[in-house]
Design a protein around this nucleic acid. Sequence first.
DNA 1: CTTCTGACA
DNA 2: TGTCAGTA
Length: 156
Amino acid sequence: MAFSGVHHFRMKALASELFQFRIGELATMTGVSTRQLRYWESKGIISSLEREGEQDARVYNYTAYVTVAVIKEFLDEGYTLKGAVKKTNEHQRNWQVLHDVMQNAVQDVVLLDETPAVDLGFFDEEETQRLYARIDENNKVKYSVRPWAGYAESIE
DNA sequence: CTTCTGACA
DNA sequence: TGTCAGTA
């Protein structure tokens, strides 16, 4: 990846367990009570990290935060807990698809004619041409197909 | 001060 | 779900 800076770090941070919250913190962040969080966990709706003993405080990762936050949104819209969970599962399936597509479609971000462009990978089966996308002055997406040189000037 | 489990006006 | 108890 050309992005070895902030973006790369953020991806790693979200993917790993760098962000961890105690139950009280998660409650404050989401507006969901600690009582609810424990109850939801007992129902298998969310999960916390492994604990040494039963008396230790629960610790949640970023994924759990997102799940709780989304369920909370649906609850506020009037859904029952059961309904909110169902909607949340669908919601997260869609975002998983988007995430997979984005991750696989966006190969790189490079400079094309001295302007930033997204490298969308090979345009042809023979893998001799590359498809790039850019945003022009009018905020319209412009595509370009260029011969694949094997490398490109990446933006760091 | 915070969290844990269990119980209930 | 809130809350109180009695701990760790």
